[in-house]
Amino acid sequence: MTGQGIGPQIPLALRYPPDQRFDSFIRPPEGALALLDELIARPGAEWIYLAGASRTGKTHLALALCAAAEQHGRRAAYLPMAAAAGRVREALDALEGHDVVALDGLEAIAGEREDEVALFDFHNRARAAGLNVLYTARGIPSGIGLVLPDLRSRLQQCMRIMLDPLDDDGRREVLRDRAQRRGLVLDDAALDWLLTRTDRDLGALVALLDKLDRASLAAQRRITVPFLRSVL
C-alpha cells in the first residue's frame, strides 16, 4: 500500500460529530456494540459488514467506531465510498498506517469493475497487515450489485450486523436524545406534532431539529406546538 494523497474533497480524516457515538445510537441490535468494541480494541478481531436500508444508522456507527478507536489510541480512518467512486484504488492506498478503517456505503461502487478490483486488493492487503475493517452497505454482499465474485466471497466472510428502520417510538427516542444533548426540551406534544406533520425520514427529522435549535435560540422561546406552527 502506498501513501499517495487523493485530494481534499475526499474526507479521509475529519472531526467526528459529537452526537455520532455508540452511546447515542438508539436501539442497536443485540450484541452489535460489543462486536464493534472488539473491532476497536483487538487487533485481528472479526471484521464486520454492517447492512441496512438508508437512514438506519450505518454512518452513525461507522463514525462512532472511528471516534472510539482514536480514544483508544488507535489510528482510524473513515471513507465514504460515494466520495471515492471512480478512484477507489487511490483512496484506499492513502489509508496506509491506519489501524481501524470504516468504508461506508459499498453500494456506491457496485458495478464499477476497476473500483471493485481495487477494493478486493485492499481487502487482501489489509488482512495481511492486520488492519481492522468495518464495511457498510444498504444490503448484503449478494444484493448490492457487485460484479466481482471474489469480492462478494470475501465480504460474505465478514461478521454481519443487520440494522432495521426505527418505528415511531424509536424516532421519538432519537429526537428526545438529540434534543437533550443540545440542551433543548421537547415535550410529548411537540414530539407528536413533529412525527405526524413533518417528513418521517430520520435524517430529515434530525436536520429539522438543528433548524429548530437555531430558531429557538434566535427567538428565545421554548419549542412548543405553537412555536413549531410558527416556524414550520
Rank of each mutant, 00 (worst) to 15 (best):
residue 1 M to F: 04
residue 1 M to T: 05
residue 3 G to T: 14
residue 4 Q to G: 14
residue 5 G to W: 06
residue 6 I to Q: 07
residue 9 Q to D: 15
residue 10 I to Y: 06
residue 11 P to N: 07
residue 12 L to I: 15
residue 14 L to R: 13
residue 17 P to W: 13
residue 18 P to K: 05
residue 20 Q to T: 06
residue 22 F to E: 01
residue 23 D to Y: 02
residue 24 S to K: 05
residue 25 F to K: 05
residue 26 I to A: 15
residue 28 P to G: 11
residue 29 P to F: 05
residue 29 P to L: 08
residue 32 A to G: 10
residue 34 A to Q: 13
residue 36 L to R: 13
residue 38 E to C: 10
residue 44 G to M: 07
residue 50 L to H: 12
residue 51 A to K: 01
residue 51 A to P: 01
residue 53 A to K: 02
residue 54 S to W: 06
residue 55 R to Y: 12
residue 61 L to F: 03
residue 61 L to K: 04
residue 62 A to L: 03
residue 64 A to M: 12
residue 64 A to G: 10
residue 67 A to N: 08
residue 68 A to W: 00
residue 69 A to F: 10
residue 71 Q to A: 15
residue 74 R to T: 06
residue 75 R to I: 06
residue 77 A to M: 13
residue 78 Y to F: 15
residue 80 P to I: 07
residue 81 M to S: 05
residue 81 M to A: 04
residue 87 R to L: 08
residue 89 R to K: 13
residue 90 E to Q: 15
residue 91 A to G: 05
residue 93 D to V: 00
residue 93 D to S: 09
residue 98 H to N: 14
residue 106 L to V: 11
residue 107 E to C: 03
residue 111 G to A: 07
residue 112 E to N: 12
residue 114 E to M: 10
residue 115 D to I: 01
residue 115 D to N: 02
residue 119 L to W: 00
residue 120 F to T: 04
residue 120 F to G: 09
residue 121 D to G: 08
residue 123 H to M: 07
residue 124 N to E: 14
residue 129 A to G: 10
residue 130 G to H: 04
residue 132 N to V: 05
residue 132 N to G: 10
residue 138 R to F: 01
residue 143 G to D: 14
residue 147 V to S: 15
residue 149 P to D: 11
residue 150 D to C: 09
residue 151 L to S: 08
residue 153 S to C: 10
residue 153 S to Y: 06
residue 154 R to M: 14
residue 155 L to M: 13
residue 155 L to R: 13
residue 155 L to A: 10
residue 157 Q to L: 14
residue 157 Q to G: 15
residue 158 C to G: 02
residue 159 M to I: 03
residue 161 I to N: 03
residue 169 D to G: 07
residue 169 D to H: 01
residue 171 R to I: 00
residue 172 R to C: 04
residue 173 E to P: 02
residue 177 D to I: 00
residue 179 A to H: 02
residue 183 G to R: 10
residue 186 L to V: 07
residue 187 D to M: 07
residue 187 D to A: 07
residue 188 D to E: 15
residue 190 A to T: 05
residue 190 A to E: 08
residue 192 D to S: 12
residue 193 W to P: 01
residue 193 W to R: 03
residue 196 T to G: 03
residue 198 T to N: 02
residue 199 D to H: 10
residue 200 R to E: 12
residue 200 R to T: 14
residue 200 R to C: 02
residue 202 L to T: 08
residue 202 L to Q: 05
residue 203 G to D: 13
residue 211 K to L: 11
residue 213 D to M: 13
residue 215 A to E: 14
residue 216 S to G: 06
residue 220 Q to L: 08
residue 220 Q to C: 02
residue 221 R to G: 09
residue 222 R to G: 06
residue 223 I to A: 00
residue 224 T to P: 00
residue 224 T to R: 00
residue 226 P to R: 07
residue 226 P to T: 03
residue 227 F to Q: 02
